Computed example of a mutant assay.
Amino acid sequence: MSGIVEPTGTETAHRLPDPQDGTGLPEAPTGQNRTIRNALLDAALEVFTERGYAEAGLAEIATRSGIPLGSLFQHYGGKRGLYLALWEEFREEQERRTAATLSAERDRGVDDPITLFVAGARAYLEGAWDNRRFGRLLVEDDGPTGFDALRRQWDRAWVRRNARLLEVDEKRRAGRVRVRVLTTVIGGAARELGDCTDEGEAREIVDEVCGILTHLSAAPG
């Protein structure tokens, strides 16, 4: 979980296919289905964060949600589908947050790449704090089989987007390394925020990391 996400319209999210049916996540829910799915996701997040993904039981998730177990399978196919839906929801919210921040900064006339990058980083980290329940789950590295590969795909896409935002020449290895280091710093800080319980400490972390990013973002020489 790292990087500044700025949708470009040219890259699509990669979904991890289900090995049993060859499909990705369920289609966007509407109406009553949305209510059912939200109840299932809320319950799944509770159980996952309390017990870990591996030890979480579907029966307990269904009981806490008040939704029959059969409906859980119908909507998500099992634990794996629930976890991936939570990740997708988290990722999309982070994209919306950082994109809105960058748009607002540009509307104010900000065009300096480093200033924009750090503003996006702050928005992303504040989102990691606001959504820290799922962040705590990510800190544990306890997810479904294949999830690490999926997260690495997103990380690579975020590095490319950060490079464009910082106007770094991706053909130069030194430039790519600099952007990857910056992205890794953000990801590490997001993980710390996921494990943080004090708002004052969380704000201190965000401020500290943004200062570090400002220093590291400057091109050498």
Rank of each mutant, 00 (worst) to 15 (best):
E46M: 00
L165N: 07
E208W: 08
T63Q: 14
W129G: 10
D21R: 02
L137A: 15
S103K: 11
V181E: 14
E204T: 14
R97L: 13
G57Y: 01
R15V: 07
P19E: 06
D195R: 14
A43E: 00
D112Q: 14
S103V: 08
E208I: 01
E95G: 15
R151V: 08
G143E: 02
L86P: 01
Y124C: 01
P68L: 04
I4E: 03
I114E: 13
R164P: 01
L72S: 09
A28F: 12
L166R: 06
G187M: 05
G52Q: 06
E95V: 01
I36H: 04
G211F: 03
Q153R: 12
L86T: 05
V209I: 15
G127T: 05
T101Y: 02
P113M: 03
R34K: 14
D169F: 06
E88M: 02
T49D: 15
L25E: 09
Y124T: 02
V179K: 11
G57C: 01
P144V: 13
A99V: 01
R15F: 06
E27T: 08
V185Y: 10
S2P: 03
A157M: 13
A121Y: 07
A62L: 09
L84H: 12
E95M: 04
A85I: 00
D111V: 10
T98S: 15
D155T: 13
L72Q: 10
W154E: 15
R152H: 11
N131D: 15
R176C: 13
P144I: 13
L45D: 10
D111R: 15
T197Q: 06
S65M: 03
I61W: 12
G175E: 10
R96Y: 00
